[in-house]
Computed example of a mutant assay.
Amino acid sequence: MSLLERLNNDMKQAMKNKEKDKLTVIRMIKASIQNEEIKLGRELTNDEELTVLSREVKQRKDSLHEFDKAGREDLVEKLRTELLYVEEYMPQQLTEEELSEIIKTVISEVGASSKAEMGKVMSMLMPQVKGKADGSLVNKLVQQHLS
């Protein structure tokens, strides 16, 4: 089942269950995917859908951080709920241990030994962990392994 089909099914279920917040989030995700399709002029691949979902998660995490700093608890709770709904559509996230193993493998494949070669490592690593790990965590772990 494609992501759009899953979103449509979940949207119908949210309507039946009168889950207003979930329905709003699903509609936002669908709109983002459809906007990307219009921009590209074709249907999205699974990887491209994952990119859109990752962007949605990142936007909400950034906003959550800003609202938390500003002391807007009403908006913080709303965003946390939205984030939970969006993350339901993301693939299973890698643990730090799993991520470290992948990073070690990529570092040895590339033959990197210093932070100067971080770009090589990241360019080979990111397609493997796309959507399965937070980019800032990946960056931090790669730096640790190259130190």
Rank of each mutant, 00 (worst) to 15 (best):
L3G: 04
E97K: 11
V57G: 01
N8H: 11
E36W: 01
D134A: 08
G119M: 05
E19I: 07
V129P: 05
V138P: 00
S108L: 03
E96G: 08
E36A: 15
S113R: 13
E5T: 10
Y89A: 07
S32T: 10
M11W: 08
S108R: 13
E5W: 09
T45W: 02
Q13R: 14
A14G: 07
N9A: 15
K61L: 15
E48L: 04
K130A: 10
E49M: 13
R42Q: 12
A133D: 00
R42L: 10
V76A: 05
I38K: 15
M1T: 10
K140Q: 15
T95D: 06
S147R: 15
E109M: 06
V138M: 04
T95V: 11
V129H: 02
Q92I: 10
L141N: 00
H65L: 12
K18A: 11
E36H: 10
R42H: 09
N139A: 00
E43T: 14
I26R: 01
T95G: 12
S123D: 03
M11H: 10
L79A: 03
K104S: 12
M118Q: 14
M28K: 14
L3F: 07
V57S: 08
S136R: 13
T45M: 04
N9M: 12
H65D: 15
R27Y: 08
S113P: 05
E5D: 14
Q143K: 15
D134G: 02
R72T: 02
E19C: 03
N35T: 09
G41W: 07
I33M: 06
T24W: 07
N17P: 06
R6F: 03
V52K: 04
E19Y: 08
E43H: 12
E49R: 14
T24F: 14
S123A: 03
T45F: 04
A70W: 09
I103M: 02
M124W: 05
E37K: 15
E96L: 11
L99E: 00
F67S: 02
V86A: 02
E66R: 11
M15A: 13
K130V: 05
V106Q: 01
T45E: 06
E48N: 05
M118H: 04
N17D: 15
Q144S: 09
K78N: 07
Y89L: 06
L7V: 08
E43A: 09
G41H: 12
K115M: 07
D74E: 15
S114G: 12
L3I: 13
E43Y: 09
Q93S: 11
E117I: 05
I103K: 01
I26S: 01
K140V: 01
P91M: 08
L53M: 09
D21C: 01
I29Q: 01
E5P: 00
L146G: 04
K115F: 01
T51E: 15
L64C: 11
N8L: 11
E66I: 13
V86K: 02
